[in-house]
Design a protein around this nucleic acid. Structure first.
Lengths: 213, 213
DNA sequence: TATTTAATTAAACGTATGATTAAATTATGC
DNA sequence: GCATAATTTAATCATACGTTTAATTAAATA
């Protein structure tokens, strides 16, 4: 017992190129999303990444540097995929495609909802401005554009307030994932693989037709 | 200048009966809701309450005791009002009444949404079980009951999945307040007094009829 | 009126924990 | 062979936290 798992110092044999850096980013994403910047120590991130704490400063200069790098690494590719998919979307299916892409992304990346709550919704969030510009800015936001197009095409009532409509849309699409831990408990662990698709169908239907008979 | 604002020790002249205790509860509610238990120090709560840090231990025994007292003080009266109003609600207006009461409560108490996120939604939240029992338990939950009644009365499609329907309902009613800081910025501070009523109207309409023409 | 009790303050206590850095060590690339 | 890149261990430095103690004053009690 007590087979000392102490690693030896010094440059490791070749093969790990950049994996330490990426392990740190992954560990940071998971921990910071769950508990927030202040509540997570550099040691904890290093442990989660199975890496020496000093490597944080070697690769990122500081805890703050690691956090910023993690945010960029997390959100830059996401927004690129969202914009490109929506730009090439067939008009008639744009709404459905938006729900699908958005909700699948949230479902597949469990660290996203809490991270969005922290950095977009919470007071002092670092991504609020950027997010609003991407999604809701007059004329330039993805959501704004989408709803205007749908109104022009007669698929959304013309007299509906576009901002309130966008709010309802985001509420229906995002909240189930924000509340996923509760949902899971309410459903009694019956949340299986096909759940996500049923949820998306249901959501699109409520958004368009409502629940009245 | 520097008019030393140092207070004198000793029992204060009569009149403040129990106000220190209540100031502490109010300060704790606001700070803990915003930043969470660990991120807020006893000194900060005492400062916010304009009270000496030692009073926390005098009245509540510990930081933990203060937090528990704050939660009880916050949620007990709330759930009582919700149940009593819903029990006496006229059937035909039950749905509307629920949206109104629920959303007005969230709108009037800005510390509620973040507190619910922390203590109900987040991993390890202390109120999760209690909340689920009150709102979503099979047979006994307010929401469950409400939706079953509405389906029986033919005001909600009978083939709609009750749990998914409840999820949509809560999403529409809660998310706008969770995201209020963002909403406010998107609306450009045009969130005025009548905003809440317009939001409630819009929400009920989307829930029942959807946004399609 | 004298004495005990309740409520408050200022100050200190002990300690735990955090981010960061320094020095030693080893492999790689030239 | 030699400079450099990547890693480990151990130490450093700071500070911020919950809690307690002793002094102090007004109210309550007898």
């Amino acid at each position: 017992m007590n087979t000392i798992p102490r690693k030896q110092p010094g440059r490791p044999p070749t093969g790990n190129d950049q994996t330490v850096r990426q392990q740190l980013l992954a560990g940071a994403r998971s921990l910071f999303a769950q508990r927030g910047y202040d509540a997570v120590s550099t040691r904890q991130v290093a442990d989660a990444a199975n890496v020496n704490p000093a490597m944080i400063h070697y690769y990122f200069g500081s805890k703050e540097g690691l956090y910023e790098a993690m945010l960029a690494d997390t959100f830059t590719p996401l927004i690129e995929r969202l914009t490109s998919v929506l730009a090439s979307a067939d008009d008639a299916d744009a709404l459905r495609n938006f729900f699908k892409l958005y909700m699948h992304t949230l479902g597949a990346n469990p660290w996203m909802p809490p991270l969005i709550l922290r950095e977009v919704v919470a007071e002092g969030g670092r991504l609020r401005g950027w997010f609003i510009q991407q999604f809701a800015s007059k004329g330039g936001g993805m959501l704004t554009k989408l709803i205007e197009r749908e109104q022009a095409a007669g698929r959304i009532r013309a007299d509906a307030d576009p901002t309130l409509t966008a709010l309802s849309m985001v509420s229906l699409a995002v909240f189930p994932f924000v509340a996923m831990p509760v949902t899971r408990e309410v459903f009694g662990m019956r949340v299986k693989t096909d759940y996500l698709d049923r949820l998306i169908d249901h959501t699109e239907r409520v958004f368009l037709q409502g629940v009245a008979p």
